[in-house]
Design a protein around this nucleic acid. Structure first.
Lengths: 127, 127
DNA sequence: GATGAATATACCTTGACACGTATATGCTAA
DNA sequence: TTAGCATATACGTGTCAAGGTATATTCATC
């Protein structure tokens, strides 16, 4: 379990991370929302903590877990190498998506999200 | 081996992907550059192909593999949820505008590129 | 055709890791 | 102190995927 990529490969862990995006949560809250046995939650949280994805605060008998940014940045940095793959053609692709997906252009909510969104000013910036 | 995250969890596969970023490569070229047994390369390439990370062209007895963008976008979409973690101040506004709609492309003053990985930004930047 | 290079696949073994169950630790309040 | 809740850990088990070796396939050249 070395790399951040192995950490986020596990679906339950991604579920936990997604939960924590809203706000910090206790183990019990995560357990209930994800309908996951408590030891499972604890074990995944341990992995996530040791990998730096979360940190915990003590609150009486509970422990509140919240996200930390660094490992996500690491993934993002890795993705960086590959962005040119789609940012080059993103204009075309984007208008394509706009045409077929979300008909209302003003609210990209979680549904059909807009990825990287670094179409503008990519490498070099000289357009 | 369902999700894109499991695919990129494997270090050798990430190495192959990184190689292919430069240009398309044959199996033998990958094999030599990564010093990896040929069956290993072929098997990983199969996984990558089935997951949509690469596609192959036939060139005589060789097969040339090259990257495809879609799965990377999928990872990027997932990351999107977490970007607010590290782009909280200045970038928050930027990415917010970015997401809300097509703002005018050239808005980054210092010629900062993309807001994907704003590591560098964090150190020098706004305190 | 046969030969050889490039690539793919089959089979087996091994190890990692996710899970379940049980139990331990820690904290609070009475 | 004891009781009870919240969380962590220990242990045994099963599964799955990565690696190694051998072999099959495909194509070009003779």
């Amino acid at each position: 379990m070395e790399s951040v990529f192995e950490i986020i490969a596990e679906p339950n862990r991604r579920a936990i991370l997604s939960l924590l995006v809203a706000s910090q949560q206790s183990v019990g809250e995560i357990e209930r929302q994800l309908r996951m046995p408590q030891p499972t939650v604890s074990k995944h949280l341990r992995v996530l903590r040791e990998a730096g994805f979360v940190e915990s605060m003590v609150d009486a008998q509970r422990r509140l877990y919240r996200l930390k940014p660094e490992p996500f940045q690491e993934v993002d940095d890795w993705l960086e190498k590959f962005r040119r793959l789609w940012s080059d053609h993103v204009d075309a692709l984007e208008s394509h998506l706009d045409r077929m997906g979300e008909s209302s252009p003003m609210k990209s909510k979680t549904g059909r999200r807009r990825r990287g969104s670094n179409r503008e000013r990519d490498k070099g910036g000289t357009k």
